[in-house]
Design a protein around this nucleic acid. Sequence first.
DNA 1: TTTTCTGCAAATTTTTTGCACTGAG
DNA 2: CTCAGTGCAAAAAATTTGCAGAAAA
Lengths: 155, 155
Amino acid sequence: MKPIETSLLKIKESLHDAGYKLTSQREATMKVLLEKESEHMSAEEIYLLVKKVNPDIGLATVYRTLEMLTELEIVNKVSFDDGLARYDLKKDGAKHFHHHLLCTQCGDIEEVHEDLLEEIEAIVESRFQFLVKDHRLTFHGICKKCQDQEKKGIQ
Amino acid sequence: MKPIETSLLKIKESLHDAGYKLTSQREATMKVLLEKESEHMSAEEIYLLVKKVNPDIGLATVYRTLEMLTELEIVNKVSFDDGLARYDLKKDGAKHFHHHLLCTQCGDIEEVHEDLLEEIEAIVESRFQFLVKDHRLTFHGICKKCQDQEKKGIQ
DNA sequence: TTTTCTGCAAATTTTTTGCACTGAG
DNA sequence: CTCAGTGCAAAAAATTTGCAGAAAA
């Protein structure tokens, strides 16, 4: 079975376990999220893609589906300080949310799947008595591509 | 001289150096930000506080001032995924932005001023060829106070 | 005196909500 | 059948913009 199919089945099971009904709109939205993993789409962008498969879906339904998936911790809601929410699928089996590299020049976002924060979490837990459940880490900077282009420009 | 006064003078100097005019509205906004350091206020909240001192100020001016201060890297715009921007003063002399502990139970936000990320930044720079300029790190979890309250509830 | 800045109101953008109808279980 | 879920349009919330007048430099 294709990996997307497997993930979709798991997600459907979570919906069912939580007492949610499986509608065609929800299934179409989940498929789009699985197919466009790592795209950091806004609700509007997701809506436009789902509309191609299911033209009658309303934007409000997409918002409601994303809210539900966030509650079930299947997706993570993130904001890169540009004034709108983006939705990012939690990778299968990942204990925590992954990190992001945001290029402040071209706007591109790369993902970092190594955890890397375990040591820091331990420090925070002991020093602040704060029980860590998840994290959001984004580095702002210049990506490889933009660095190379800058070099070209100088020469 | 009081530390706030010193910081205010430095900020005024930055404005001047960047060619911005010093208006009473901007000064009042900067003072509020300095007095309520560590409050993670939204534009609306800042506006209401500035209004107490300068009742004629408009919300748009506060937005414009915050945008300017963000551009000058005097404040950092952050979002805690609750759908509105918050503004956080960059601490004097801090090389990078500080971190946050967001309690998902009571909504309280604590600040962490240790950098802690230098090692991880080095990894990211070498492994992804990404030139790190700044970062945003927020831990989601349960604060000390809420943990204690839960314990009480169980007993 | 020259520009930038401001307040106000209107416009935009993003997200949420009410409600009658539909469809999954 | 029954109640959760949906589409639509309207409302709400957050932010931006246009413009004429005000005030720094």
